[in-house]
Design a protein around this nucleic acid. Structure first.
Lengths: 184, 184
DNA sequence: TGTACATCAGTGAACGCGCGTTCACTGATGTAC
DNA sequence: TGTACATCAGTGAACGCGCGTTCACTGATGTAC
């Protein structure tokens, strides 16, 4: 049952969206091609008409997820707003729709060149954007951008790892205060 | 071929040590019971004389790995020394022997009660110890402990995820400067 | 202390299931005339 | 524009492999007398 080119392109997008969400929720090894295709409303056999392998999908889906994270970053133009949004209870709960670095950071180090290269390019962009929100020398601004990104990503990872909601909330609150304002 | 109680206890330790290292290196889903037993110098069939399941092993091995991290923390009595050691190139390279929060942080959120409970208890301890290195009110010290731990863990996660060694080094260096000294 | 027997850590084969990938097939789409 | 044919997105069964777990068996250890 061949479908129109438009429909096929739309299906490919749906596979990517499902994969991007499910990888972040369950990890690269925690979700299978069949479950991703089912989530996209297709059967698993057709997967290889769109992607060469699961690894290929991981690379494309990660890039897609990171791009969305970039939109979230672009939606704020002040450091405190961005940090508050990043370290919000909503982001804590929405692992599948949130930042890929927080959801998959440790796993990415074990992935192939496609995934890691995509993350590296994205991280550079995000650092550039963040640096613009700080004062001081070029080097000082970059240092603060790195410290802030490390801080918010680490806080989200720890808040999600902990099994006590009160402690998770305390971590997010403390990190919002610490990273939400530019320092000397 | 029954072995002495002492030998059996020693074998159990070897399984735990191998699991602790391999889980950190490859992730909970990235390594099998058979490979862990082989690393411990045993065959996979005997695994269930020591542990009820792979999940059980994950919980015990994670607790073991975190305890070692605690020793590393105890080995330093100044903030800057600890941060320098944590954010060193040696720690970056030694994923299997390093901090479990940096190696497995994102994966732990998806694990069972045993693993998450162990991490939570350990994280509380580490925060208490870190807080002692800061000045100010009790609340301020705790906030700085949380921000520092988030910062160093996040920096290590990002430095390992990136595929450019120069960028990884830049991240570690910037984070050492940012988190290595107590702030107001 | 010596002897007989029960225990159980460890072995290696086997089971069952899930998952990534392949394949023959379908039938609507796209294209060449 | 209409017709005939090639293309190919999608289907569902199947393959092969790896992995968590089980099991019958071994034989040295531990224990009861």
């Amino acid at each position: 049952m061949r479908v129109t080119k438009e429909k096929a392109a739309e299906n490919r997008e749906r596979i990517l969206a499902a994969a991007s969400r499910l990888f972040r929720e369950k990890g690269f090894d925690g979700i299978g091609v069949d479950a991703i295709m089912e989530e996209a409303g297709l059967t698993h056999g057709g997967f290889y008409r769109h992607f060469r392998s699961k690894d290929d999908l991981a690379a494309e889906a990660t890039a897609r997820g990171l791009a969305r994270g970039g939109e979230m970053l672009a939606a704020h133009d002040r450091l405190a707003d961005y940090v508050d949004a990043y370290l919000s209870p909503e982001h804590l709960a929405d692992r599948g729709g949130g930042c890929s670095m927080a959801a998959l950071g440790c796993d990415i180090a074990r992935q192939g060149a496609g995934v890691r290269g995509g993350l590296t390019a994205y991280l550079r962009q995000r650092l550039d954007r963040l640096a613009g929100w700080f004062g001081g020398s070029r080097a000082a601004r970059r240092r603060q951008a790195i410290a802030t990104l490390s801080g918010v990503v680490g806080a989200m990872v720890l808040a999600r790892a902990v099994d006590d909601p009160a402690l998770a909330d305390e971590i997010l609150t403390a990190a919002r205060q610490a990273f939400g304002q530019a320092k000397a």
